[in-house]
Design a protein around this nucleic acid. Structure first.
Length: 489
RNA sequence: GGCGCCGUACCCAAGUGGUAAGGGAGCAGUCUGCAAAACUGCGAUGCGGCGGUUCGAACCCGCCCGGCGCCUCCA
């Protein structure tokens, strides 16, 4: 059974959904005013994998991930560029789909936007005012934390402690320094909606309460997001939601750790961040390969810990992945009619699956799950030496494919691998085989043919020349026992 | 000032009381025209340091050292 670390209780707990076989999960998405960086990718990936694993485990998952499309930063950006907020949000929502798509992040079941839930937000705010948990000041509405005794439950903070360190200028109109805005009066030129308190726009936290309740109900199973959202965002969400409904809000709170650069948090203020598109643009590998390499890299650390991003770490992920794709290539090739390995294959797959599930059940321990896959790789390689029937080889590939699918790995039909006969397939997969690569797959195949001739005539000088010139362009040749060769970038 | 996290081999990273998973890199060997891949073997008597609890600790407790995060928009 899946165990998840629940920020609310501070413990690793067995995960049982509210309704059997069904899971409702809400994850805070992004504020769409800029391109996503690798940190956003990690968060999206963690919850994409959690969703995939829940589905693999037999649950029907309703996965809601929002876009914050009204916010100070968006307004600021729109003013700077002299365009409307919609222009900004539309652009970055599209960019989000494009970038996350390259990483194999699946779309959520629902992807609501704050601006499409103004009615729900206003209604929720009215309820809070009615219950004495919120008050109106000059067209602004604030949540009154002092009237909500459980405030601080998630982040384990006490109001007194927060005040001691508060470095924020206190708004005199607020009754308590930690009171936060549910509704903000609009200034001229800002997006604005009519409300009982005058024209205005929602505060940041209220949208998530309104949207999660609308799409998942008042109580649901999992609420996720980055660690930095624990306070104040999620704390405030709990206060608003529980305050309004009087019921439990999310049962499990799951938070992912940061991506770091040189042991430091990656953030805009430090200027040490890398956008996803920048990473893809710089990569020498075809786009699908880069996407999978980034996935492997991000999953090589358990989601709650920090993960340090570096060229070296990414290269290591690529190398580790190479081993799998080399094996998949070999599994496709004829291997005689031997089948001495078939007998133990089933047991090896079963054992690896058990280890994989055990790892994932343990708070999504993806490094351990990857180790299980690596173990199977070793086992299958050994069996291949003994000889696997074509049925056995197909079975092995299916095992990698179905387990890999949980992590979003191993789904490429042909990576950048291919032999003479598979050249066409590899060019399909490599969408970004691209500008600087002087050689097309066809040219490579032609050179390979020439090299094969040369080798047949024991003209090794010419054969090595071809190998060297291809290597200079980043193309590796591997000779197979039958005299043909496969290549990879 | 408050709350919290982390420190395991050259690098990444599991392990949370029973005697150190896995990957990458490296070295040696088998195979190969060469190379790559694959396979075999090597690789931390030690898990930041010092004490303590225990038959037994990387794992529990205490102190110390070092790094980081949150408390302000932030995945």
């Amino acid at each position: 059974m899946l165990h998840l670390f629940n920020t609310l209780t501070g413990k690793r707990e067995p995960f049982k959904p509210f309704e059997p076989r069904k899971v409702g999960m809400y994850v805070c998405g992004v504020t769409v005013y800029d391109y996503c960086h690798i940190g956003h990718a990690r968060s999206a990936l963690v919850f994409d994998v959690l969703r995939r694993y829940l589905e693999y485990s037999g649950y029907t998952v309703t996965f809601v991930k929002n876009f914050t499309d009204v916010d100070d930063k968006i307004i600021k950006r729109a003013h700077e560029q002299g365009v409307t907020c919609e222009t900004i949000t539309k652009k970055y929502i599209e960019a989000y789909y494009e970038d996350m798509g390259k990483l194999g992040i699946r779309r959520a079941t629902e992807e609501p936007k704050a601006t499409e839930h103004i009615e729900e937000i206003i209604r929720l705010t009215e309820v809070l005012i009615g219950k004495g948990l919120a008050y109106v000041v000059d067209g602004d509405v604030y949540f009154h934390v002092a009237h909500y005794p459980a405030y601080g439950r998630l982040s384990k903070r006490r109001l007194e402690d927060l005040q001691a360190g508060a470095r924020v200028e206190v708004d005199e109109r607020k009754r308590h320094p930690m009171d936060f805005a549910l509704w903000k009066r609009s200034k001229a030129g800002e997006p604005s909606w009519a409300s009982p308190w005058g024209p205005g726009r929602p505060g940041w936290h209220i949208e998530c309460s309104a949207m999660s309740i609308k799409h998942l109900g008042e109580t649901f199973d999992i609420h996720g997001g980055g660690m930095d959202l624990v306070f104040p965002h999620h704390e405030n969400e709990i206060a608003q939601s529980c305050g309004a409904t009087g019921k439990e809000f999310a049962r499990f709170w799951v938070h992912n750790g940061f991506v770091q650069i040189n042991q430091e948090k990656m953030s805009k203020s430090l200027g040490n961040f890398f956008t996803i598109r920048e990473i893809f643009a710089k990569s020498d590998w075809p786009e699908p390969v880069t996407g999978e390499v980034l996935r492997y890299f991000l999953l090589s650390t358990q989601y709650r810990g920090p993960v340090d991003f570096s060229d070296r770490a990414v290269k290591e992920a690529k190398n580790a992945l190479n081993g799998f794709y080399d094996l998949f290539e070999r599994l496709k090739e004829p291997n005689g009619s031997e089948e001495k390995g078939d007998g133990v294959l089933a047991a090896a797959v079963e054992q690896a699956t058990a280890s994989f599930v055990r790892a994932m059940d343990d708070d999504l321990n993806t490094p351990m799950a990857l180790a299980a896959l690596q173990g199977l790789r070793g086992d299958v390689n050994k069996l291949l030496e003994k000889g696997l029937s074509s049925r056995g080889r197909t079975r092995a590939r299916e095992a990698f494919r179905s387990l890999g699918d949980v992590l979003g790995l191993f789904q490429l039909h042909a990576w950048q691998f291919g032999d003479a006969s598979a050249g066409a397939a590899s060019s399909q997969a490599g969408g970004a085989t691209d500008e600087q690569a002087a050689l097309t797959d066809e040219e490579i195949d032609r050179l390979l043919m020439e090299r094969r001739e040369a080798r047949a005539q024991k003209n090794f000088k010419r054969a090595d020349e071809i190998r060297r010139s291809l290597a200079a362009q980043g193309i590796m040749i591997e000779d197979k026992p039958d005299g043909t060769s496969r290549w990879k970038r």
